[in-house]
Design a protein around this nucleic acid. Structure first.
Length: 301
DNA sequence: AAAGCGTGGGT
DNA sequence: TACCCAAGCTT
């Protein structure tokens, strides 16, 4: 059972979304920025942010020259602000150690801050047209269904990821169409072979092990889905939102009102933000985004 | 290896 | 209303 690259690529030619980071003049760095933003984040939420971002900071060195505070503010409520911090660090490394040129080698890319297996492969394939398998959640799901006949991909793990790369390598066209095949596979998972309610009636694949075995259901989830309300993550988000929205450092009391009930949880969240380098405490005891201007209206007069 | 890490839209 | 889910990475 296999996926015919021709079926997929001809479907992609007509179904491909017109995403701005796919335009022909987009640089490898700008593609890398899109991949950071798209980690665990829907396309619809990246769309309004990415164009302004890459206009403001078009190169690694331009990004590295900004303060972490500016980067975190531009990131806004995209989520997982550690990604913004790592993107900033990644820019500094590329600027300093790679002459401002994004590496094209998967293993080199994967050593950079915030770049794991997926992002390294995506940059190599989509920015440099290298014939490397790109394995994301969409690809795992499409392969699980079309090739292995299962409703869902197995839980991601290092070992499982390696197997997925191997399975993909066997499918990858041995030509310059490899990168396009990977993009098409991801697009199929995003638009047709979706996690819930897949549109099998319009699927371009002529063979699919899951369909041919009668759409067997997946296993019930073993662990309960995690909630968000009341978690440390939410507390961190509230605290960081206060700092993003204040041009100048804020007092502890101003942070307290952002998470007023559970003081133990608030302290834990603040400590973890400090440990992550997403927040700094300045000498007078107030808190600020890292690298932010320490002056304020009272100190400056 | 499993758990932590944001946020908001869809159902 | 809850819950699911979205181009993952790090420890």
């Amino acid at each position: 059972m296999s996926i015919d690259p021709h079926d997929l690529i001809s479907w992609f030619a007509s179904a491909e979304r017109d995403l701005p980071w796919r335009a022909p003049d987009v640089t490898p760095w700008q593609i890398l920025v899109s991949e950071f933003m798209l980690q665990q984040t829907p396309v619809s939420r990246v769309l309004p942010i990415w164009p302004d971002w890459v206009t403001r900071w078009p190169t690694p060195s331009a990004t590295a020259a900004a303060t972490a505070a500016d980067v975190l503010r531009a990131w806004g409520k995209l989520g997982y602000p550690r990604r913004a911090k790592r993107l900033h660090e990644c820019a500094a490394v590329i600027s300093r150690d790679f002459a401002d040129v994004v590496p094209d080698d998967v293993d080199v890319l994967q050593q950079l801050p915030g770049i794991g297996s997926y992002t390294a492969r995506a940059v190599a394939a989509f920015a440099y047209r290298k014939p490397v398998p790109v394995v994301d959640t969409n690809v795992r799901r499409v392969v699980a269904r079309a090739v292995h006949g299962r409703a869902e991909a197995a839980a991601p793990s290092t070992k499982r990821d390696h197997a997925d790369v191997g399975a993909l390598l066997a499918l990858l066209p041995k030509s310059d169409r490899a990168a396009r095949f990977s993009a098409a596979l991801m697009e199929l998972g995003a638009l047709v072979c979706t996690a819930r309610a897949p549109s099998c009636a319009v699927c371009p694949l002529r063979s699919c092990a899951w369909r041919e075995s009668g759409f067997p259901p997946g296993d019930a989830p073993k662990r309960p889905a995690q909630r968000y309300a009341g978690t440390d993550r939410q507390a961190r988000g509230r605290l960081l939102d206060v700092l993003r929205n204040n041009e100048f450092p804020v007092s502890r009391a101003e942070l307290d009102v952002a998470w007023p009930v559970d003081t133990v949880q608030r302290d834990r969240a603040l400590a973890s933000l400090l440990a992550d380098g997403l927040v700094e405490q300045i000498t007078d005891g107030r808190f600020a985004l890292p690298g932010q201007d320490r002056n304020d209206s009272t100190a400056s007069r």
